[in-house]
Design a protein around this nucleic acid. Structure first.
Length: 565
RNA sequence: CGGGAUGUAGCGCAGUCUGGUUAGCGCACCGGUCUGGGGGACCGGAGGUCACAGGUUCGAAUCCUGUCAUCCCGACCA
């Protein structure tokens, strides 16, 4: 494609509202343009890059036996009511009424739709397994879109759904997808960490995320130093260090005037924080509950939500706390009646804790669980952090930020039951179909790849996903010899099956070099009067410092070698 | 939802505090001359509902009120 006929232009400065590097470079290089918060238009360069990624995804999904379909973005709200997610999906569904007054939603994901599709087409175990996927627009009304393409409201996603007759078959379908994802990310030039994850609003049991490690990432993951375990911080399990054994002593009230926090409490008593019990108040569906955890640990709200049956807990307001007769700073579950108590299992790993006395300015020594307070639920609800101990092999966790680029789930039968999507087994017995689902953020990958592949001058895109393979720059367009040579190379390289972006503009060399670097095309070919006088053309990989000179006749083969073709 | 910041040409900004020519500058854009290997120089142009609405005033980009938009931080352990 000739740049004189192209659409979109490069910017010397990025818009002031772009602050992550991928956002800045994608806008400056003319790949994308913002329309509204979390809503981007793809210019030709950006769209081509996204299409290259989509092509890779299609190849790998097809190779794994999945079949491409397409489902509506606008869906009747009914099916969301049927699954029970109409009210519970976070962020809340966006939608509108059609002209007949029927409630429609803009789909944030497609479990409901695909389940109805499969229900109509699968009756027997002979029809299974099957895996359906699509690459298509999603809309989620995110409370805070940010970081360019890394978190948008409208985005492109590849979503796949597997349907199996048995758990073993689901395991196989799931493994096939994990392998396909590894292939996809590898081909995109990315190294991703596969970590255990919470399944969140989608539902299901086993779930893993593919995390592209990057400083601008929103997710925090914990990785064992031995490489055998990695998990999103929302999910991570760890070995809680037990306190030294002591025999339980009698409770004793002590005055602690002015002490409000665990740190102050531990300091004033000269004890470690793990000798204290911390009480935290949450409101769950209008009910205030008290959550008790050892003072050196913090509550993981995702774990808490899961043991509460999936209802989102929220920090209680001061008013709710007061109405429940709880005393902030001196609260505990000791002696509390009529209020639900959730206890982290860390409190079983020690004795004689210091806890609040539920009286302003007082605490109680030698509190022991379950002797001194009840726990309606005792479970692991603690948040792991860097330095904690891996549950698999005792290794130490380190933490890292990353971008969630893929997420796979074993759903089980939650949706097939909602929609009566059943099959008959060999004995004629009816069962709900066992499902899995597999998401991959395509437009997010565009941003993620730039986060991973750039330098101070612009993008350094891998050939597999670059919008063009060759940036052909003619330095002296008013020189007939140069123009003929450049035109000839353009034709030759294009005919050889290489995507060429031909900079035939009447611009200074510096401008062309700057743009070539910014746009990030893997190979740069320069035709100039100077080189031509020696019968030579200049070739350079975007990621190399120095260029090499080759005779005109050898350019095509040399470029192919550089691209590994 | 809460907190903070910002809205002036396609992009980056000054001007606002202290109201008063025709609202400026850099980049980009159009015409021209020179130049020609890392965003070059000069000459001449075009481009603005100063986010929007209302108010104060002889006079508002500037002061007041409201609205909208965009970005950042927080969604947290009493």
């Amino acid at each position: 494609m000739r740049l004189t006929r192209y659409f979109g232009k490069t910017l010397r400065q990025a818009p002031s509202d772009a602050d992550t590097i991928s956002h800045q470079l994608l806008v400056r290089a003319g790949y994308i343009q913002q329309l509204a918060a979390g809503s981007y238009q793809f210019l030709p360069l950006g769209w081509r890059m996204q299409q290259k990624i989509s092509d890779i995804i299609r190849e790998e999904m097809d190779a794994a036996g999945a079949l491409e379909v397409s489902m509506p973005v606008i869906q009747p709200r009914e099916i969301w009511e049927q699954s029970g997610r109409a009210e519970t999906f976070i962020p809340p569904l966006a939608g509108f009424q059609d002209r007949r007054g029927r409630e429609m939603v803009v789909a944030p994901t497609h479990e409901e739709a695909v389940t109805t599709m499969v229900k109509a087409n699968v009756n027997s175990y002979r029809d299974l397994p099957v895996n359906l996927y699509q690459i298509q627009t999603k809309f989620r009304d995110e409370p805070r879109p940010r970081a360019g393409l890394l978190r948008t409201r409208e985005f492109m996603m590849k979503d796949a759904y597997s349907f199996d007759a048995t758990q073993e078959s689901l395991d196989n379908s799931y493994d096939l997808m994990v392998k396909a994802y590894i292939n996809i990310f590898t081909r995109c030039g990315l190294e991703v960490a596969i970590v255990e994850a919470d399944s969140g609003g989608i539902g299901g049991k086993d779930s893993q995320e593919f995390i592209l490690l990057a400083e601008n990432g929103e997710d925090v993951v914990l990785l064992c130093e031995n490489g055998d375990y990695g998990a999103n911080v929302e999910k991570a399990e760890f070995v809680k260090q037990p306190n030294p054994e002591e025999s339980p002593l009698e409770m004793e009230e002590i005055a602690t005037p002015g002490i409000k926090t665990i740190d102050e409490l531990a300091k004033s008593l000269g004890i470690p924080t793990n000798k204290t019990a911390k009480a935290v108040f949450y409101t769950v569906g209008g009910e205030v509950i008290v959550v008790t955890i050892r003072g050196d640990l913090d509550v993981n709200e995702v774990k808490l939500r899961n043991i509460l049956g999936g209802v989102e807990p929220r920090f209680s307001t001061p008013k709710e706390v007061a109405n429940s007769n709880l005393v902030p700073g001196s609260a505990s579950a000791v002696g509390l009646d009529g209020i639900r108590s959730i206890v982290d299992d860390s409190l079983t790993l020690g004795s004689n804790f210091v806890a609040g006395a539920n009286k302003e300015g007082f605490h109680i020594k030698n509190v022991n669980f379950p002797r001194d307070f009840k726990g309606d639920i005792v479970a692991d609800i603690a948040k792991a952090t860097a330095g904690d101990v891996c549950p698999r092999d005792g290794g130490i966790f380190h933490d890292a930020r990353g971008i969630e680029v893929g997420h796979v789930f074993k759903l089980g039968t939650i949706y097939s039951k909602d929609f009566d999507a059943n099959f008959l087994d060999e004995t004629g017995e009816s069962h709900p179909i066992i499902m899995g689902c597999y998401g991959l953020g395509v437009s997010r990958l565009v941003g993620g790849i730039v986060e991973a592949h750039h330098d101070e001058n612009g993008m350094t895109l891998p050939a597999a996903i670059a919008p063009y393979l060759v940036y052909l720059a003619s330095l002296n367009v008013d020189d007939e010899g140069v123009r003929e040579a450049a035109d000839g190379l353009y034709a030759e390289l294009t005919n050889a099956g290489l995507d060429v972006l031909y900079d035939d503009r009447d611009e200074k060399p510096g401008v062309k070099f700057k743009d070539a670097d910014l746009i990030g095309i893997p190979v740069r070919v320069v035709v100039s009067r100077r080189g031509l006088n020696n019968g030579q053309i200049e070739l350079k990989l975007r990621t190399d410092r120095e260029a090499t000179l080759v005779p005109t006749a050898e350019v095509r083969d040399a470029v192919k070698v550089m691209l590994g073709r």
